[in-house]
Write a protein that binds this DNA or RNA. Sequence first.
DNA 1: TCAAAAGTGTTTGCTATACACCCATGA
DNA 2: TCATGGGTGTATAGCAAACACTTTTGA
Lengths: 222, 222
Amino acid sequence: MAFTYEHPHPAVTVDICVFTIRSDELKVLLIKRALDPFLGSWALPGGFVGIDEDLDAAAARELREETGVETGYLEQLCTFGRVDRDPRERVISVAYFALIPSDAIEIRAATDAEGVGWFTASELPPLAFDHRAILDAAFERLLGKLQYSTIAFQLLPETFTMSDLRHIYEVITGKPVDTRNFSKQILSLDAIEETGDMRRDGPHRPAKLYRVLERDTVRITK
Amino acid sequence: MAFTYEHPHPAVTVDICVFTIRSDELKVLLIKRALDPFLGSWALPGGFVGIDEDLDAAAARELREETGVETGYLEQLCTFGRVDRDPRERVISVAYFALIPSDAIEIRAATDAEGVGWFTASELPPLAFDHRAILDAAFERLLGKLQYSTIAFQLLPETFTMSDLRHIYEVITGKPVDTRNFSKQILSLDAIEETGDMRRDGPHRPAKLYRVLERDTVRITK
DNA sequence: TCAAAAGTGTTTGCTATACACCCATGA
DNA sequence: TCATGGGTGTATAGCAAACACTTTTGA
């Protein structure tokens, strides 16, 4: 089957930067390319946008196919369209930025089977196409939004401690965060509530468990 | 001539939200459509991306063709790709956001000749396609960046007074701005300098003229 | 001399930061 | 009882906001 147009049309793809926190590190989902060009290279998950598929839907589909995560935070990042970014044909890629809770990753992507892997954000392998530039833009967005929105909550499991949350900030910014100021500031947002339960996990005082009030809303706080 | 692909390809366009300040109002550039669909409707300037043309270059070309402005501030806004946004075929549009100084508009677009017009941002006519949503997103971006960057300077002519600059803020936000706090705040950015000249334009004390130090850089200030 | 906009400092309140000790538990 | 991380309050500094009068000019 062939599709013919009067004027040349570029191909349009979505590429998704999927972040999560695991083992005290910010992780990025990459897949190993099974086709030329860049066969064998690591790359962002993504693919062609269906001709009858919305952009967001295409990104959500790819996210689901690669991680098994149905929902999760997804926002459009920006569009990369340099003429020479793909050696095959003109490809314009709409990049997305996704965050998923650390406990939501299904086995498919969590195991390194089938050329899918989670990489520490600061230790990435060489990437195919301009995917390194896309990831850099995504990380910058993440770092920015951390400061003025509730975006970090998207990385939390159902219940969590104040330390878990503080840890997310510390891991992403790479800087220690003052515990007293942090909990004051977070609690003043009225965005989380105590579950009433505690977590006991070591030779120390148990930690209060919290849950996020509006799980699927990211609020601007400043 | 025809172009054939194995899989269906969408068309890709750029649409540009061009803002300027004139007559104490925020103005938006619109063009009257000369073709179906939406023949006779007002729409954002824009058009198809050349198969060998970068996205930014396509946006700059459209800006030049419609306003006669060679440079000017241009940034990618976001990409609109709803399946049904164009009744003809699948069209994905990369939206851009442009600011031009109030004195830089060439006659071509400044006169209402050939179905090109500057509209007050708060009094827009019905627009073709999803262009109203694109403009809303652009205005939101403008309002946001006004607060934490030097983006407003892009709307200034070569030399200007402190009142001119304050006026830009007042027109865009719709709120009065305190003159004393404003000049303190602006001067502390070290982004403008006095030219040494004054502007005398009425029965009142003359105003100092300033110029922007780095005309083509937008700096994040917070 | 009057009307109109330009220019300029200080006070106040709030937000952000710095900082240290006791608590509850498991081993 | 000791080591470990959890939990909490206060004092200070820096930034943002409120606020009014004098200056210079053209008519």
